[in-house]
């Protein structure tokens, strides 16, 4: 564990709490992509299969994995049931099969061992890299977003961004590299570039998040 990893994971935790806070205080999931959230459930379920196979890493690791699975399922419940009237499926129209199918194919090709858990792990890494697309698509379509929704997306981007110095640190301190995670992680972070540009130049200056026409 190094400081980049720790703060990355904390940013990930923060993103979930920001999202829950947004939905529960506004009693609305307006602007939130159900599809992105459903993809995160798929990501966590396929990546954390080892939880159910008795692999033990650490208490921290197990606790975080359970939290990510539990909270992502809870968010789906909130959107689908508790606040379903505030969810607009006509805005959330990104075709998830464009993300699921290529991620699965990449998982079959690029993996560290051709076993169910390793292929699923690779699939989850590729899927996570692109899972934000439906959410960014809503942002693109509406052209604006509530500040709190943008804080959620920013926290997710920071989480992924911090994993990059973590890998550099681990390369020098442990000599280990995980090429699949690194390549997918760099792509994933890159997807946030446009978003961060608007976030830093507008939202953090106190202006509304509005995409240029």
């Amino acid at each position: 564990m190094n400081i980049f990893r720790l703060f990355g994971d904390l940013a990930h935790l923060a993103s979930i709490f920001i999202l829950l806070h947004k939905v529960q205080t506004s009693r609305s999931c307006r602007g939130i992509s159900f599809k992105t959230q459903a993809l995160y459930v798929a990501v966590f379920m396929t990546r954390y299969l080892d939880l159910f196979l008795g692999t033990w890493v650490s208490f921290y690791n197990t606790l975080m994995k359970l939290f990510f699975i539990g909270s992502s399922c809870y968010i789906l419940y909130l959107i689908r049931f508790q606040f379903r009237t505030t969810y607009d499926p006509n805005l959330d129209t990104f075709r998830v099969e464009y993300l699921l199918v290529p991620s699965f194919i990449l998982g079959l090709i690029f993996n560290y061992e051709f076993t169910l858990t390793e292929v699923m792990w690779s699939f989850s890494i590729f899927l996570e890299a692109v899972a934000i697309f439906p959410q960014l698509f809503i942002l693109q379509r509406t052209g604006e977003a509530e500040a709190i929704t943008t804080h959620y997306i920013a926290a997710l981007g920071i989480y992924r961004g911090l994993y990059i110095p973590n890998w550099i640190y681990r390369y020098y301190s442990e000599g280990s590299v995980d090429p699949i995670a690194v390549v997918a992680g760099i792509v994933q972070t890159g997807l946030y570039a446009d978003f961060f540009y608007v976030y830093f130049t507008k939202v953090l200056q106190g202006q509304r998040f509005e995409l240029p026409a």
């Binding site: 990893r5 994971d9 890493v57 995980d178």
Partner: peptide, 10 residues
Amino acid sequence: IREEKAKDEL
């Protein structure tokens, strides 16, 4: 096989 060390990442 994925390195044991990397398996602690989330």
